[in-house]
Simulated assay, not measured.
Amino acid sequence: MLTRAGRVRPEPRKKPKTAYTRFAAEQPNETWQSDFTHYRLTDDTEIITWLDDHSRYALHVTAHRAITGAIVTSTFTQTTYIRGIPPSTLTDNGMV
């Protein structure tokens, strides 16, 4: 949208070729991805999500005032209780 509106000049040479390669786990429940997003509802809210990397199925989604290490651990534990323990996980290695 920004490019069409003339607000951004595309510079495709800057994008690495690996950015076009899509990664997905080969088997369901093989790898989970986790991330959280800031979202403005009535106050600032953070939403944590655990996804199955193979199917992109949302295994767990909850909203919190602020995500802490305890919340990450708790949501992971709750989700493994229901879905089993994945052999691996992926995160963006954020501060939490």
Rank of each mutant, 00 (worst) to 15 (best):
T89H: 01
G94R: 11
P10G: 04
A70P: 01
V72S: 07
A5R: 15
T91M: 00
F76A: 09
H38I: 03
R7Q: 14
K17R: 13
V8Q: 10
T68E: 09
T42A: 14
V96T: 15
T42M: 07
N29S: 03
I85L: 15
H54A: 12
G94H: 04
R22Y: 11
V8R: 11
D92V: 12
R4H: 09
A19I: 01
T80E: 05
G6E: 11
D92T: 07
E11L: 14
D92R: 10
S74D: 15
E26F: 00
P28G: 03
I85S: 12
F76D: 04
A5I: 02
E11S: 13
T79E: 08
V61N: 09
D44Y: 12
T62M: 08
F36K: 07
T68D: 05
P87H: 08
R40P: 01
V8K: 09
F23Y: 15
T75Y: 00
Q27D: 02
H64L: 04
F23D: 02
D53M: 04
R7I: 12
T80F: 05
R65Q: 13
I47L: 14
T3G: 03
E26T: 06
T62K: 15
Q27C: 02
T80A: 01
L90Y: 12
D43F: 11
T21G: 00
L2V: 08
I85P: 00
R13F: 11
T31P: 00
S55M: 12
W32S: 03
A5S: 11
H60D: 13
P10C: 06
D52R: 02
I71F: 13
I48W: 12
S88K: 10
E30R: 07
V96F: 04
Y57F: 15
T89R: 07
R4M: 10
D92F: 11
V8M: 11
F76H: 11
Y81D: 15
L51Q: 10
T18L: 10
D43W: 06
I67G: 04
F23W: 14
L90M: 12
W50E: 01
M1G: 15
H64N: 10
L51K: 09
P12S: 03
L2R: 15
P87A: 06
I71Q: 09
T80D: 06
E46Y: 15
M95W: 04
G6K: 05
T45Y: 08
P87Y: 09
K14H: 03
P12F: 04
P87F: 01
T37F: 11
T49Y: 00
S88R: 15
M1Y: 10
A5V: 00
F23H: 08
M1P: 13
P10R: 09
R56M: 04
P10S: 05
T49R: 05
A5W: 14
R65M: 03
T77R: 10
L59H: 03
P28Q: 07
K17E: 14
V72Q: 01
S88I: 02
F23M: 04
T77A: 14
I67Q: 01
Q33T: 13
